[in-house]
Design a binder for these strands. Structure first.
Lengths: 354, 354
DNA sequence: GCAAAAAATGAAAACCTTTCCACATCGGGG
DNA sequence: CCCCGATGTGGAAAGGTTTTCATTTTTTGC
């Protein structure tokens, strides 16, 4: 009776199914009221007689009515929502920040709308789209940089916060940023290795570019080497992508050639885990033969064997501050701010004093 | 000049920013053509003079025009899209399936639209909403069961596939399913432990309910015990949630009481990792003191120390078959099918023969 | 050159909702 | 009894797009 699904009886060409979506109009007709009354019921507005409301709700229930969010968003002006644009799914570090952001945003009385970006898509484009469509009042970019794109950012009509990427557009009045001092944090990691007596240190990282996190972490590495009166030989920097598999492959390859070093700094924990496995698979021991320290501070490092040392990026604080800054900008029209947080060295059984 | 952002000059109450979204109409006016022409340019339809097209594109570029997806979806009938409704983010096993599904869907010439569900939301509701709004032609439920909700599923006007959850609604002509034989797969894991000489086996799993995956895996465990002429003592079944932390806590607690066993079967790999760390933190060795085998076959098990034995659910095949079944149902109107796949035992250094 | 076919274009309807405005009903106070 | 405010209700416009249909322009074939 509430069946809404038909198939064409023919069995030939277009077997597309015909569907009838119940609209607010149908519900209005079926319950003998006007569409505005149904709308009021749906949205819990006052000034609907109790009896009418009950009748409409019954009909809605019976016909499985669901409001069409497209039409709603198309019409509605203010949604009290914040959008988070995340670069890449499947990233444990971002996932943990995102989770905390969601909580903070909801605690602030806003809805949270997450957009996941794949490699192909552009974050500023995505943000503009979200602003247009969903009528959000602020945007957080998680893992996007927006560097050199001031002109396009200008076209975004709501306050923005760039979170975790080092180089946010710093000269726009509506664009704030929260970043970790990657250079100092990476230096901490390498300092720690030196402090533990290591002299032959390898670095596992990504492609070094001047202004991104990787470049900054690399600078931090160099800082530490310099401060200890040494230099990082180019053949001790191994480039790979940020995944366990890539970390594994990179280190396996190197160790396979007979190359040896006493410690590795990996620019992300997942890389570090891949590297760690490569080391043990080669028959070497962590930390007896090679020490290893990662970067990020994902949960997993605590559960790995041995516990991995790392430099923790303060996910909690990044999330909270990002949201706080954005809410402030939205609610008090306060100017853009740029905050830098510090990393925290987390010791672990993966580093040995030699 | 292409600035579209203003602030009210007052500094007092409503500091909401006023925005002007450029619409297709604006672009039409600004480039001196009709709106239908702009629409054709945007969507790459034929029958637009090269010159006109160029002019419109220039204007679009200049004013950062982005089509409003709400309006688009509101109007558009057929989108050639498939929706995947995923229960829960932050699940490595689902993430790997999802990734493969996305590829398969795009290879099949469809767009893939992912909806992530949090604990609060209902998957069938979400699916109905997606069907209404986005005009998708099929739905895959990743990790949803739909059991006992035939009536509601009937209201979904497109073919559906339930993926990975054991108990899909089996009597609807448009609802297919792909599942793993959890009972047999779990039995394999425990059989393996018996085969390796273990007699004192503990099980780490979730809340057992008759018809869900956990319940089936539990049945498989009992099957194995029975076949080996033994029973699983109730105090050897530890209930916990599916996370590293919970696995760690559960096993730590037990080991802390001095309780001992020679092997653990954990009903998910993340649990197994937590458990493994709890074991080593207690000063025991894997596999010398306690062997451990997990379930799922996430990538991480290969990189853990020691390599974790597991029963791999064939993620690749689950994804491919799910999509294939759905495409078949969409394109050939073929009837619903229900497939069961097998698990694959992956040996690992975490299990020792005793 | 001319007719007809093909290409190019624009106007307007439709998609589903919210919201504004107008109207109706109903007590109660004068 | 009348008017008024409060309460309840419906009609219609608006929001941005796609699509159909009609119309104009261009090309093609003879």
């Amino acid at each position: 009776m509430c069946r809404v699904r038909f198939r064409k009886d023919s069995g030939n060409s277009m077997r597309q199914q015909e569907t009838k979506n119940f609209t607010i109009k149908d519900i209005a007709r079926l319950s003998g009221v006007g569409i505005s009354t149904v709308s009021r019921v749906v949205n819990g507005h006052p000034y609907v007689k109790e009896e009418t409301k009950k009748r409409v709700l019954t009909v809605m229930e019976e016909y499985h009515y669901t409001p069409n969010a497209n039409a709603k968003n198309l019409k509605q002006i203010s949604a009290n929502a914040i959008s988070v644009v995340v670069r890449g799914t499947n990233n444990a570090f971002f996932a943990s920040i995102l989770e905390k952001m969601e909580r903070a945003i909801e605690a602030g009385g806003f809805q949270c709308r997450v957009t996941y970006l794949d490699e192909r898509s552009d974050e500023i484009d995505a943000a503009r789209r979200v602003c247009n469509e969903k009528k959000v009042q602020g945007v957080i970019f998680l893992g996007g940089s927006g560097v050199g794109r001031e002109k396009e950012l200008e076209a975004i009509p709501v306050p923005c916060v760039f979170s975790t990427e080092s180089a946010a557009a710093a000269n726009l009045e509506h664009v704030s940023s929260i970043t970790v001092d990657d250079r100092a944090a990476a230096k901490q990691a390498v300092d720690y290795l030196f402090e533990m007596g290591h002299r032959d240190i390898a670095v596992l990282g990504g492609v070094r570019e001047a202004l991104n996190n990787i470049g900054l972490r690399y600078q931090g590495v160099l800082d530490s080497f310099r401060e200890h009166g040494m230099t990082l030989p180019e053949e001790r920097y191994f480039t790979c992508l940020f995944s366990m598999e890539e970390g594994y492959n990179a280190i396996s390859r190197v160790l396979g050639t007979g190359e040896r070093f006493t410690a590795v700094f990996a620019m992300s924990d997942v890389m570090a885990i891949g590297a760690a496995k490569a080391i043990t698979d080669t028959g070497l021991s962590i930390p007896d033969d090679i020490s290893i320290i990662g970067y990020d501070g994902i949960d997993l490092v605590r559960y790995y064997n041995p516990t991995l040392a790392t430099v923790r990026q303060p996910a909690e604080e990044i999330a909270e501050k990002s949201v706080a800054l954005l809410l402030e900008a939205i609610e008090n029209d306060s100017p853009a701010r740029h905050m830098t947080l510090g990393g925290e060295l987390i010791a672990g059984a993966s580093v040995k004093r030699i």
